[in-house]
């Protein structure tokens, strides 16, 4: 693969990095990444991954842009209100970097469609806002042996971890979704817009590290931060031999939908 003059210049600040270089940039440009949810987390992640020149970006979201989204979902602009999020995001990506091929999936992920959606991608980024989707993505990625980045935010807090086959999965740490109502949703509890950017860009950085093949991923570690105190820490997590999906005797062998998504105030 030969970078064009324009690409050389566009990606020069990557190429200068010894750990990226031309080879790493070429890997990024050959990368196929699926972003599930183009909201608070997916928006910044999609922007940075597009800017970085990821070859193919898949976008999954069934929602349309709502005025209340704009406080944190930075890929959508005011005139986009009412527009399907995946199309709104696709338009911005084309402007940031026309080199990027965008595949839109204007739908939500469910047990019956997720395997088909993720199968062509190298990496999945979880930018969803509900536990049902998060557990579904985990299970699907474990079963399909896809690496993925988990991310979640609420109020001033964020957490993220990275799964690669063979290492601890989300269910190893959190066995099953919390009971309905135990955890408030963004719409109920609120969220500081900027922390969506903080966490989404961390996830994007994990994707790029994975594609380039350099550095230490957040595997077997859960990163937790609180923006009020501006306190960051990582917690070691271990692969659980009794994990229902990746343990020695898994009980989840086919995908099922967990209870209905909880972040549903608007509907």
């Amino acid at each position: 693969m030969d970078l064009t003059e324009e690409q050389l210049e566009r990606y020069s600040r990557h190429i200068i990095l010894q750990d990226v270089s031309v080879e790493g940039q070429e890997k990024i440009m050959n990368g196929k990444v699926l972003i599930i949810g183009t909201g608070g987390l997916g928006a910044p992640a999609a922007l940075y991954l597009a800017a970085a020149g990821v070859g193919t970006l898949g976008l999954v979201d069934g929602d349309v842009v709502d005025l209340s989204n704009l406080q944190r979902q930075v890929i959508h602009f005011t005139p986009d209100v009412g527009k399907p999020k995946v199309f709104s995001a696709q338009e911005k990506i084309a402007q940031i970097n026309p080199d990027v091929k965008v595949i839109t999936h204007n739908k939500r992920v469910f047990a019956d469609n997720i395997a088909d959606i993720i199968k062509d991608y190298d990496f999945v980024l979880d930018g969803t806002d509900n536990f049902a989707a998060k557990f579904l993505i985990n299970d699907a990625c474990v079963l399909e042996k896809k690496p993925f980045s988990h991310g979640g935010i609420l109020r001033f807090d964020g957490q993220t971890m990275t799964y690669v086959p063979g290492e601890a999965c989300y269910r190893c740490v959190f066995n099953s979704p919390p009971p309905k109502g135990a955890v408030p949703t963004c719409s109920q509890a609120g969220v500081l817009g900027a922390i969506a950017g903080m966490l989404g860009t961390m996830q994007a950085a994990e994707v790029l590290k994975y594609l380039v093949g350099k550095g230490d991923l957040l595997t077997n570690r859960l990163l937790i931060f609180n923006a009020l105190r501006m306190d960051f820490r990582t917690v070691k997590v271990k692969k659980n031999p009794d994990c229902p999906v990746c343990g020695n005797n898994p009980t989840i062998t086919t995908l099922v939908d967990e209870e209905q998504p909880v972040c549903d105030l608007k509907r």
Binding site: L3, L8, E9, S12, I15, I16, S21, V22, E23, E26
Partner: peptide, 12 residues
């Protein structure tokens, strides 16, 4: 730094 970028390109 484009000269360095291009150098890296050639080295690759």
């Amino acid at each position: 730094p484009m000269n360095f970028v291009k150098t890296k390109m050639e080295l690759a």
